[in-house]
Nucleic acid binder design. Structure first.
Lengths: 336, 336
DNA sequence: CTGAAAGCGCTAACAG
DNA sequence: CTGTTAGCGCTTTCAG
């Protein structure tokens, strides 16, 4: 069928061992053998079997990635960064887009295990017992990127959501806002939903600003959700002067809702986002957003996973907290 | 080390063959054996090795995907569709984001080959001799999605770029425009660059509208390129009344450039895009765009590849041309 | 420096 | 219905 190492050996007039040696760039091969083997490989168009090699070496150079939504700019950017760095370290990526489907995630975690991936990166916004239990019993390192790990024994690369939301809220307060709305993700999730909301709330408390329950609404981090929630907000008799959306997609949804109702942003109402996805810089007005270091997050996730894979013993499994940064654009008005 | 089929067999008190049989859901296993094997699997937390299985069966259930840019909404949406359908057919996806880097693409094509993927889907905008030669000599089916294949013997799933651009242009002409600008991708590429431009040009010719060379500009399909080209356009003494951007990203770039200069779209200048990415519906004004059936493209790509894999003989390798559709939004004014 | 041979974990005849 | 055994294509002792 396909040409194998034996064929190359025969053609080069050497043993399979020698071929294997040049394949793996070992020393202790004579110039002569090296040349003949390379020639034979060339002539036969030999392509070594990664599968056979993996089986023998018990090493696949593969890592699995769980993405919650490939079409989201935020996640596809992290994935892009993960891919770039994986490639640098010689890992191949097998990716699963769960699209909200937790049973698909679980299924793929088992597939990853059967494929003997060397590590797994999970980015999901929700989880369930089966998944947590898989993670706890897993034999390969698993790392959570941009989301909290289900329990402190697992490593996670993320920002301090609480502090970031707190800082964003203080920025709004400093700009003179007191009628502040919060459009959040689902509080029940393991995600940042709770932390971001708490950061928002505590900033208001610190500055002794009363929380108007009408201004607090929860959706699902996606654009249509921001749009729908904003619609409710705008229907209120007394509107907020600014809305803090807990994701950029929600912020854009809110922006579009306002724009479509003929309002001007930020003159009629201000909007601030969260994530720092490129979309904030694409829409008009460009949206002020609490930026996560997306590229860095992918990079550090991969580097950390690599360390976990190669030196499992020496690695502490503590979270890595990256720096957030408020990027001021054109969607927030000062109303001092 | 890890538990293997032999351990399960021993534990269940049967032969490895029997275990293998229940693993593969074959008939001819007694209730009794089935139960005991499943119990042993459970107790030992046995996870069958996909690698060993692949080696033996000479089948990996894996396909490789080359994506030009993961952060692009257009490609990540196709990828998402490919992933969803791959999962349906039981394929695992290994993905490479080439990010304009053709030598990375070539490297990964060889990796895909070593991994014995069963098929490859390529979405790239450029190519070179090495890649073409790889494709021509490849032993596994290779399919081009959303882009033209380098030569007619390879299958490609795409729209009729020429006709789509022609239709979009006629729409503009019907709306009364004669001062029409074209912002294109690179004509030299194997991409749709040439076809789209030709469609545009021929529509003008058919309607006897002179082509103003100042209005024809080429960039790279990305947002900043559209922005820069638009800037040149707006600096012209006599501006076009509409600009046809050959990609949605370019259209958004053009839109932002116009907006940032204080112009109103479509009142001061109209814009039409190409691709039908979700971004066209997110910006304001929403952009009229010639839409590719993105989801369907991913689905049909995967189905076709699957057919190529399972029934290589019976499959014709002709291109599959999908229907384009103009989606009218708010960025084009009638000027009759 | 080079080669023979023993597996890596699994499936698939083949024989019972 | 069940078990024995020979590989799948490669790497790696272990001897030369």
């Amino acid at each position: 069928m396909t040409v194998k190492i034996k064929d190359v050996a025969k053609r080069a007039g050497v043993s399979v061992t020698s071929v294997s040696r040049v394949l793996n760039g070992e020393k202790y091969v004579s110039e002569d053998v090296l040349a003949r083997v390379n020639e034979a490989i060339e002539e036969l168009k030999y392509s070594p079997s990664h599968i056979a090699r993996s089986l023998k070496k018990q090493k696949t150079n593969t890592i699995g990635v769980i993405v919650p939504d490939l079409t989201s700019n935020f996640y596809s950017t992290i994935l892009s960064s993960i891919e770039e760095n994986a490639s640098k370290y010689g890992y191949n990526l097998i990716v699963c887009n769960i699209a909200e489907n937790l049973s698909k995630e679980l299924k793929y975690l088992y597939i990853f295990q059967e494929m003997r991936v060397e590590g797994i990166i999970i980015m999901h916004e929700k989880t369930n017992d089966d998944i947590v239990s898989f993670v706890q019993n897993a034999t390969m390192p698993i790392l959570f990127s941009s989301v909290k790990s289900p329990d402190p024994t697992f490593m996670s690369v993320l920002i301090d959501d609480y502090q970031a939301a707190f800082d964003a809220t203080e920025y709004l307060i400093d700009a003179g806002h007191t009628a502040i709305s919060y459009l959040g993700g689902d509080l029940q999730d393991i995600t940042s939903g709770q932390s971001r909301y708490n950061g928002f709330r505590d900033a208001l408390i610190k500055h002794e600003i009363a929380i108007n329950p009408d201004y607090i609404k929860f959706g699902d981090y996606k654009l249509p959700s921001g749009q729908a929630l904003m619609k409710e907000l705008l229907a209120l008799p007394n509107r907020p002067t600014v809305v803090f959306a807990a994701s950029d997609d929600m912020a854009v949804g809110a922006l579009n809702c306002a724009l479509d109702q003929g309002l001007y942003v930020p003159d009629d109402i201000s909007i601030i986002g969260f994530d720092g996805s490129t979309i904030t810089n694409i829409v008009r007005p460009a949206i002020t957003s609490m930026q996560q270091p997306i590229y860095e997050m992918g990079q550090i996730s991969l580097e950390s996973l690599h360390r976990l894979i190669t030196r499992p013993k020496t690695q502490q499994k503590t979270d890595i907290v990256l720096q957030h940064e408020l990027v001021v654009r054109d969607s927030c008005k000062k109303i001092n």
